[in-house]
Design a protein around this nucleic acid. Sequence first.
DNA 1: GATGAAAGCAGTGCCTC
DNA 2: GAGGCACTGCTTTCATC
Lengths: 164, 164
Amino acid sequence: MTENTLTEFDATDFRIMNALVEDGRMSDVMLGERVHLSATAAARRRKLLEEQGAIKGYTAELDLPMLGLGIVVIVAIELRSQADSVLTEFEEAVVRCPSVTFCSFVSGDTDFLMMVHVKSFEDYDRIYRSELATLPHVAKIRSSFVMRRVTQRNVPPAVFARGR
Amino acid sequence: MTENTLTEFDATDFRIMNALVEDGRMSDVMLGERVHLSATAAARRRKLLEEQGAIKGYTAELDLPMLGLGIVVIVAIELRSQADSVLTEFEEAVVRCPSVTFCSFVSGDTDFLMMVHVKSFEDYDRIYRSELATLPHVAKIRSSFVMRRVTQRNVPPAVFARGR
DNA sequence: GATGAAAGCAGTGCCTC
DNA sequence: GAGGCACTGCTTTCATC
């Protein structure tokens, strides 16, 4: 229930997390079979992981290209200043952009990195004008189009090496 | 079952997808209430969306910081050449890196953009040496550390505007 | 898209190790 | 402290309309 108990997870916990990352709707019966536990024991551990916050929730994975959003653009944005109020105003505007799925303030060459999903290049042009170019305090926008996706995972495989 | 039927989705389909993105383990009964359908009707539509591939699957969302992976690094990699064999060898090596959750071949300033999850800066140094620096044909690596996450969504909100 | 019966599953308390 | 079993009540599934 609390959070900063520096919880210790054992191999079974990692196996449960692994199974549920692969199939979030797996029944407790199947989960139990998969991790060699009774369904009740598996369910109890699953709930504990949920309560502890290690499992934050479950989500359906949608096929965005099939929904007409086949193009992914990674956008680097530099602001005119890095004053606190400037950052805050920019961030508040970003969360309201309906095409943005990811935005982080980063160190390095640029200030923010974002990921944008669009239907077509024409659509990106439209969104560039209507969403990105209207964000406040922007000095420079650089767009990189995703040509081919090499890897896309929810969780780094390193986590699952611990399930043994 | 097939895929290129250019499937048409109605507002109820989008409402179902929205509900399941928010809670992938939602029962069909709850789903039916949420979209104003009987549980059976909701279940039938859910299954159809799964079979059509619009819903690719379900996954548990893990709290990576709680599992000791609190630092996210976005890595831009330039290769020495863009010959087909060079790209292929690089990509085959990347998918075997256990700390990489995202890698795409992109247009623009760099060749590949990747996302790496690590425990600490020391850990990044170790992974930089053991995973990234050993990737073949790399000319230049630029690392940006995520200082603050502004937005992180599975699906752009624009998709859900269609659920009405 | 709704209904109702049958099967399967999740949730609880209790017992064992 | 953690796993297993049995019971009860939902939930899902499938036939039928």
